[in-house]
């Protein structure tokens, strides 16, 4: 653990003090608040029959395909992850800090772990705070408190969103280990995101992280709306209990975690085995 906390705190403070974070913050909050506003317009018309999870609809209702909270998250969380990770390692290298850093009495993995951890905490702060704010505003605007199951589902949604963001962050970290130039790794990660997003829009790449996230989160927030969830029988009428919902989206959750883990593991191994060479 030597040095992990030092790296973690320094990186966290870096994230929170940078313009980058302010911009991400504004992005996420603008999206979250507009999603709340949109949901407010449509939620009453969507709650028709004996709807069970009214509160959760705040995060899923938009009157259409786009504009809901979960839609914005599926688009913006990749950007947050990429911005937090795309220059993690190569910026240290190009600025001449890496060899100085590694000559300190810290394990080498403390550097990459501490950086990843700080990114994860920043990401979690963003996700948790915007979900809490939308929940608070929603509670005030619709006046229907969440049931305990809804709270559980909402927490799972937050956790899943963090995992989803973490995947993109580890992907960007991977590029930052492999590409020495910061611009290259930024372009590579954004390019991949754009590629997956465009293909997601056209419904071509079903096994893309964007799709996995959408499927899982839709199941969590709108257990009755089966549209777009390929593995679920369409004729499910009653909302599944939480445990069953979780079981149903277990493959998606595991895939997301696995993707994130693989990206991080590859960057970890590459970083650990890399030799510091005289320039």
């Amino acid at each position: 653990m030597s040095g992990l906390m030092a790296v973690f705190w320094k990186e966290l403070v870096d994230h929170l003090s940078g313009w980058r974070f302010i911009i991400l913050f504004l992005f996420i909050y603008a999206a979250g608040l507009s999603a709340w506003w949109i949901a407010n317009q449509y939620i009453r018309s969507e709650v028709t029959e004996t709807s069970k999870f009214i509160f959760l609809r705040l995060f899923a209702v938009s009157g259409g395909e786009i504009g809901s909270f979960l839609f914005f998250m599926s688009i913006l969380l990749p950007i947050v992850g990429i911005v937090l990770g795309f220059d993690a390692i190569n910026s240290e290298r190009t600025s001449g800090n890496l060899s100085r850093l590694l000559s300190q009495p810290v394990y080498r993995d403390s550097v990459i772990n501490g950086k990843f951890l700080a990114g994860l905490v920043t990401l979690s702060l963003l996700v948790m705070s915007i979900v809490a704010i939308v929940a608070g505003l929603g509670l005030r605007s619709i006046g229907v408190p969440p049931t305990s199951e809804e709270v559980l589902r909402l927490l799972s949604f937050v956790l899943l969103s963090i995992i989803y963001g973490a995947f993109w962050m580890s992907l960007a970290t991977l590029f930052s280990v492999f590409f020495n130039r910061i611009a290259t790794s930024a372009l590579a990660s954004l390019g991949l995101w754009f590629f997956l997003f465009v293909f997601f829009l056209f419904g071509i790449v079903r096994v893309s992280p964007i799709f996995l996230y959408r499927e899982a989160v839709t199941m969590l927030l709108l257990p009755r709306t089966m549209a777009g969830v390929s593995v679920v029988p369409v004729d499910l009428v009653f909302p599944l209990p939480f445990g069953q919902s979780l079981l149903l989206i277990w493959p998606q959750i595991v895939s997301l975690i696995a993707l994130a883990a693989v990206c991080f593991a590859v960057s970890y191994i590459k970083f650990m085995r890399e030799e510091i060479r005289p320039t």
Binding site: A132, G136, L137, L139, R140, P145
Partner: peptide, 10 residues
Amino acid sequence: IWGWVGVGIV
């Protein structure tokens, strides 16, 4: 009460 709880959370 829920109005206040909402405002409180925010």
